[in-house]
Design a protein around this nucleic acid. Structure first.
Lengths: 131, 131, 131, 131
DNA sequence: GTGGTCTAGACCACC
DNA sequence: GTGGTCTAGACCACG
C-alpha cells in the first residue's frame, strides 16, 4: 500500500504523510474510508509503529483523518477540501524558493517548463529524493 | 550587512550562504571583492565565529569564494556563472515540489502568479521563513 | 577502525577523510555499506564528535557518502568512480610538486623508484607525516 | 626580482623561499652572491618586511644563505649541494602522495606522463596555485 | 588583524 | 540510538 524509501533524506513519517495526502487527493482514499492500521502498516513496511503513529496523528491534527478509538483511523468528511486549502498556504514557501531562483539567475522558461510538465500528467508519483 | 533570523528553522549558516549567494548574483559583491571577515561578521551579528566560518568554507567548497589565510575571503572569478549553473541543478527539486502541489489540487494559476511576481521585481528581499 | 596521529600537522578531520577514501577505494567499504556512527568513532578515537562530523559532511559534499538522519552514514553508489575522478584532478598539484623537485636537482630515478614502490604493493599503509 | 601571488594559498614567505631555492639551483644566484636586502624586497613587492625576513631566516637555518650583520644576506658555499640534499628528504612526502594516488585508482601512466614533462623542460616556472 | 582546527557541552529532530 | 546546529573558549599559523 505504501512505498517508503528508507535511504531518502525526507523523514519516513513525512513520506507517509505525503502518500496519504496524495491518495486522498486522487480519490484512492475516499471520505469515510478506513486507512491501514498502525500495526498492519508497521509490520508491512518493517517500520517502527511509533513512526507510523506520528504520521497519523499529524494528519489527524490537520483534520484529514480521524482516530476512532478501538476501531482505527478514517478519512474525514471534507478531507479533500481541507487538503487543497492547506496546500495553498504552502505557496508562501514556494514563493521564496522561486523568488530565490529568479534572483539567482534561473531563467523563467525553465520553471515554466516544469509547470507544463506538472500540469500535463494527471498524476505523477516520482519520489526520487536526492541532494 | 547581513540579516539573520535566529527564530527561523533554516540554520543560520545556511541563511548566510543564501544571502551571500544573492549578493554575488545581484552584483552587490563583485568578483575579486573581499567579503566581511569571519570575526567582523561574528561580532556584528552576535553569532559564534565558527558558524560564520561554516558558511564561508561551504561557499569556498562550491568555488564561489576563496580563503586567503591571513588576508581574508574573496569572491572568485567566475562566481556568478558557477552560481546559476548550480541553481539549474536544483530545478529537479522544484519539479518535485510543484509536481506534488499539482497532484494535490493547487491551481496552476496560483503558481503562475508567483512566477509573475518573482520575475517582475528585479530583486525581492522577502525572508519570511515558515515551512 | 581508524588510526589517527594527533601529533601530525595534517588535521584530524583530514586524516579521517583520507582513510575513509582509501577504504572505499580498496573495497574495505563497499557501496551501500554503513560507516561507523559519528558518536561511535568519536568515543573510539577519543575525539570530539564535531571533528568526526566535519569529516563525514565533507565526504557527503563530495558525493562519496550519504547521511540518512536517524539512521547513519552510508557509502554512495558510484563512490569509487567519483573517487578516482576527483583524484585525477589532483594531478595538477602533483605536477607542480614534481616540477619543483626536478628543477631543484632531484634525480628522476629517485622518483621512478617511488613510483615502482607505490604500484608494486597492492595497499600501503604508511602514515608518517612530516610535511 | 621576485614574483609573488598574494592570492595564492601558499604563504608568501614560502613562495619567496621556493623562488630563492630555484634561483640558487639554476645558478641565477651563485655562491657568494648577495641577495636583495629585506628592505629593498619589502618595498619592491609591497610586502611586510617581517614576512621577507621570515623567508631569509628560514633559508639561513637551512644553511643556504648566511646573514652578515650590517652587510646583508649572501648565498653560502655549497648551497646547491645542500639544496638537492634537502630536497631528497622531501621524497618521503612525495612517496605518501603518490602512494595515496596509487591506492585511490590513479593510473601509473598519468604520473609517468607528468614525470616526462617535468624532466623534459630544463626549467619550468609554472606557479598557478589553486584549490 | 586574518583564516582554521579542536574541545566540551547543550539542544533539536528522527527512528 | 542516529545526524545536525550552535556556543564558548582555547590555540595555531600567517601578515
Amino acid at each position: 500500500m505504501f512505498q517508503i524509501d528508507s535511504m531518502s533524506r525526507t523523514p519516513i513519517y513525512e513520506q507517509l504523510i505525503d502518500q496519504l495526502e496524495k491518495m486522498i487527493a486522487s480519490g484512492a482514499l475516499s471520505e469515510g474510508d478506513q486507512i491501514p492500521s498502525v500495526r498492519a502498516t508497521s509490520t508491512e513496511l518493517g517500520i517502527n509503529p511509533v513512526t507510523i503513529l506520528k504520521s497519523y496523528t499529524e494528519l489527524d491534527g490537520r483534520g484529514l483523518i480521524r482516530a476512532v478509538p478501538g476501531r482505527g483511523y478514517f478519512v474525514c468528511e471534507g478531507a479533500k477540501e481541507i487538503l487543497t486549502e492547506n496546500k495553498m498556504k504552502d505557496l508562501g514557501e514556494l514563493s521564496r524558493i522561486i523568488g530565490g531562483m529568479a534572483s539567482l539567475g534561473v531563467p523563467r522558461e525553465a520553471i515554466e517548463e516544469i509547470l507544463d510538465e506538472a500540469y500535463r500528467d494527471p498524476m505523477q508519483g516520482k519520489e526520487s529524493d536526492d541532494k
